[in-house]
Write a protein that binds this DNA or RNA. Structure first.
Lengths: 185, 185
DNA sequence: GCAGACTAACCAACCAGTTGGTTAGATCAC
DNA sequence: GTGATCTAACCAACTGGTTGGTTAGTCTGC
């Protein structure tokens, strides 16, 4: 066990910050708590990441990177894509929370380059798919992407007031996939 | 113009608090700012609403009440219902933000009675609609409600990274209504 | 005149961010 | 190889400012 290791410390801070930001958001996160969970001094966070906002940026960018790496887009089978998005956020609810905090707490933050690029590439794919008659032309590419995204994450945006009546993951997943199939019909 | 009027002061506090909570959430809201915008002393908030959390409860409950009063549920025309939900949150984006903050910052808060009751009544309506063959049985009532809700608010949950490519309200509304029609087909 | 609407001034706790200094471990002269 | 030197990882303690919440007392409509 090394006592000093900048990579390891950096990673521990990032992990602790991810947990804290996902649970409490940018404003609600506490630097002290992150440092404590990371097992290092508060000053290290500032040495490695600058300040609280920049730390959140690092956390969120990393989270988006992981998402884009893991969930591949596929115009030829959009229901399956929706299923994968569902699976991903079912396995990593923290990452969806992170993006919700980002949307709420950074209403006019300048958009992330990486996401813009991915969005554009997906819109292009959809356009091509429409020309190839693989994707119906009922909706515009943007509308379709928004609908699929919303349907895939429909359960997480539900009120907690449903309680026990919320079905299990298998049934919820099927609802997502079938709904996207129907939207594309 | 009265200088002292408890109803009026209470209403001004509620309005200011709604604005502040919608913009910054529970943790991010500042009591001082609310008092300043309401044009009264901070101590009045505590006299009328107890504390910050209870003030948020009052704000959120009131917001939910307005929503339930204004957007009527109708099993016989669910696409139109989705359209009304869309219109409502297009006109009052603050109220959607409020409910998102609630979901994020009160993950284990005990559910609101009013919402539970409304949900149950809507699920019952859907069940009856399915028996009357007005609503297809492809999805369970809960699944259907979740899907419709998600589709109706699909645009607000979009990343800010789409920028200019987001279409205008009329086109977005049509996408919502058509999507629900297709889900029900 | 008095209940209760209202306020200025206050407080302990907390917060993001800083500072001055310590120490583990790599580097190098010999 | 090994002691001296240097670098950078690390930390306890602090700072200026803010926060939710309180209190003691003033004012006013009825």
């Amino acid at each position: 066990m090394q006592q000093r290791n900048s990579d390891r410390t950096r990673a521990r801070i990032l992990a602790a910050a991810t947990e804290e930001f996902a649970a409490r958001g940018i404003g609600g996160a506490r630097i002290n708590r992150i440092a404590e969970v990371a097992g290092c001094n508060k000053a290290m966070l500032y040495a490695y990441f600058g300040n609280k906002d920049q730390l959140f940026d690092a956390v969120f960018s990393h989270s988006v990177e992981l998402y884009l790496d893991e969930v591949g887009f596929d115009v030829d089978d959009l229901p399956a894509y929706a299923g994968r998005v569902f699976d991903y956020f079912e396995a990593h609810p923290d990452r969806l929370r992170l993006s919700t905090w980002y949307r709420l707490e950074r209403p006019d933050g300048q958009p992330l380059e990486a996401i813009i690029a991915v969005n554009q590439s997906r819109l292009d794919d959809l356009q091509k798919g429409m020309r190839r008659r693989v994707v119906p032309r009922v909706f515009s590419p943007v509308s379709l992407l928004a609908l699929i995204q919303a349907v895939a994450t429909s359960w997480t945006s539900m009120n907690p007031e449903y309680g026990e009546s919320v079905p299990n993951a298998i049934i919820r997943r099927r609802a997502v996939v079938v709904a996207v199939q129907k939207i594309l019909s």
